[in-house]
């Protein structure tokens, strides 16, 4: 029974991981570079929720939306101000400027919120529902439903809307997409903003479960990288699957092995994947560089 409980807990956290993963996949899809500031967007999502909800007392759900919107705004400005002028520069330059940006955000966060870890108060009752010997905290039920809802929303955006189709077209062939009349610059910005918004949403979901401090982005980054590589770089299905998988393995690892190494599990999975299936679970063969 405890095993099932671990799996369920893992799936709940995994839902948020899936959001981080698809966010990163989106940005990778268009820029062909993993966003090294992705974890910081997650961190900002959590901190903004802390400020809006715990500090200012705004309604919880509204605070979540505001937090996500604020991060999307920051992401948008960053994309326009720094990434756009670097479009024709080497991948190395783009990566390093992203790392500089992530350091910047981390340290700004430290100035604003101090390095002392904060916890976001939970608006939900702390008594768990029990069902067949399993425990379900209301907070966590909300997390999994919100995560699934956002995954679904992203899926619909990509599959059903005009801009979503244009995004996919651009991922597949940027030059051909521009010949269709698609404004590539606009797709870049839009994709980036949605991508960081997804990271921020994961931050608002997991923030109340864990504590929040300026360095949580580092581990979030690492997990995000592990997720997209395990799933196969560029694959949305892969990122979602790998997100849930990572949540479950972490939960089992913490339960049966040691909670100290819980955060290393993503990386261990990543290494196993690189040994046995370097292109990831859903990756296409021959994706070099």
């Amino acid at each position: 029974m405890i095993f099932v409980q671990y799996v369920i807990n893992g799936l709940i956290i995994g839902g948020a991981y899936a959001l981080i993963g698809i966010g990163l996949t989106m940005v990778f899809g268009i820029m062909r570079v993993v966003n090294f500031a992705h974890g910081e967007m997650y961190m900002l999502g959590a901190y903004f929720l802390f400020t809006f909800f715990t500090k200012m007392g705004i309604n919880f759900y509204l605070s979540m939306l505001l937090a996500i919107a604020a991060v999307m705004g920051i992401g948008g400005i960053y994309e326009k101000a720094i990434l756009k002028p670097l479009r024709r520069r080497s991948i190395e330059t783009v990566m390093l400027s992203m790392i500089g940006f992530s350091l910047f955000i981390q340290n700004i966060a430290m100035l604003i919120w101090t390095p002392v870890p904060e916890s976001i108060t939970s608006p939900f009752p702390l008594t768990a529902y029990t069902l067949g010997g399993l425990y379900f905290l209301p907070q966590r039920i909300m997390v999994i439903f919100a995560a699934l809802f956002l995954v679904l929303l992203t899926h619909l955006l990509l599959k059903k809307t005009k801009i979503g189709k244009a995004m996919r077209a651009t991922f597949q062939d940027l030059e051909a997409a521009s010949l269709m009349g698609i404004k590539i610059d606009r797709i870049y910005s839009f994709t980036f903003v949605i991508g960081v918004g997804l990271a921020a949403s994961a931050g608002t979901l997991l923030g109340p479960i864990f504590t929040v401090h300026p360095y949580i982005g580092n581990l979030a980054n690492l997990k995000a990288f592990a997720i997209v590589i395990i799933g196969g770089l560029g694959s949305f299905t892969g990122a979602i699957t790998a997100g849930f998988l990572l949540g479950v393995f972490e939960s089992l690892g913490a339960g049966y092995v040691s909670s100290g190494y819980q955060d290393a599990i993503g990386f261990i999975l990543l290494i196993i994947i690189l040994i046995y299936r370097p292109t990831g679970l859903f990756g296409k063969i021959g994706q070099r560089r």
Partner: peptide, 19 residues
């Protein structure tokens, strides 16, 4: 040809009329 391989035929055509 530079068709979008992972879009359906109809979606490819829709992209052609993007504007």
């Amino acid at each position: 040809r530079r068709i979008f391989p992972e879009l359906t035929v109809v979606e490819n055509l829709e992209m052609g009329a993007y504007l």
